[in-house]
């Protein structure tokens, strides 16, 4: 994989793409492992009638419903899915996605707005220079993205833009360099067989 980056020959590029496709196939089986673990945990809870096992039944039934709607009933485009959809009337999968998954997902994450605001109110205190910088930047960024910020100070959106483009980038880039160097070092350790923890060794 490293060699093909430096030798852009057709054989190398095709081999690279082929291996990436193979990785996606292997990854699909890895998903089976994850789903198997989820299924085993919840099935065990139901079988042993553990407290609140009814919720586990909800998880397994909704999982089964989504898989049935998507795979058996068809997802609406391409090959087998399309042919199955044509035999049926509409796609239950899309209906479930739009009316169950999307609102649940959006509301679940919007809940965090309350908890982050509450946590910030309780913990944000301008005790020293560092905490003050964090607090002031967070307030400017929040106000810079909404019309009320511009009403308070007309150049607030510009200040927000400048913070995001320069000092915030500097801090993030410093972290990114560290992450990049760390991931290269770890990759080399794995390739050279020094690091084997991923194999359980």
């Amino acid at each position: 994989m490293i060699v093909q980056f430096f030798v852009p020959h057709a054989v190398g590029t095709q081999g690279y793409e082929l291996l990436l496709q193979w990785a996606r196939i292997v990854g699909a089986f890895a998903l089976v492992l994850g789903i198997g673990s989820l299924f085993r945990t919840h099935w065990d809870k139901i079988r042993r009638r553990r407290p609140q096992y009814g919720y586990s039944a909800v998880t397994l039934l909704s999982f089964g419903l989504m898989v049935w709607a998507g795979i058996v009933y068809g997802t609406g485009e391409g090959g087998l899915g399309q042919r199955l959809t044509e035999m049926q009337n509409g796609t239950a999968f899309e209906w479930l996605f739009d009316n169950v998954q999307v609102p649940l997902d959006a509301t679940m994450f919007s809940l965090l707005a309350f908890f982050i605001a509450s946590a910030a109110y309780r913990t944000f205190r301008a005790r020293n220079v560092e905490a003050t910088l964090l607090l002031v930047t967070a307030v400017i960024v929040m106000l810079g993205r909404v019309p009320i910020g511009e009403m308070i100070y007309e150049k607030m959106p510009e200040v927000y833009e400048w913070i995001m483009q320069y000092p915030a980038v500097a801090g993030k880039r410093g972290i990114l360099f560290g992450v990049a160097l760390g991931s290269i070092a770890t990759s080399l350790r794995i390739i050279l067989g020094i690091e084997r923890s991923h194999l359980g060794g």
Binding site: S110, A131, L133, T137, M142, R145, I163, G171, G174
Partner: peptide
């Protein structure tokens, strides 16, 4: 600089949740 980056990240996260 790290504090500014964290503050900006925090502010952005709050506003993203708010928009949701």
């Amino acid at each position: 600089f790290l504090m500014v980056a964290f503050g900006a990240g925090f502010g952005n996260t709050v506003m993203a949740r708010m928009s949701l």
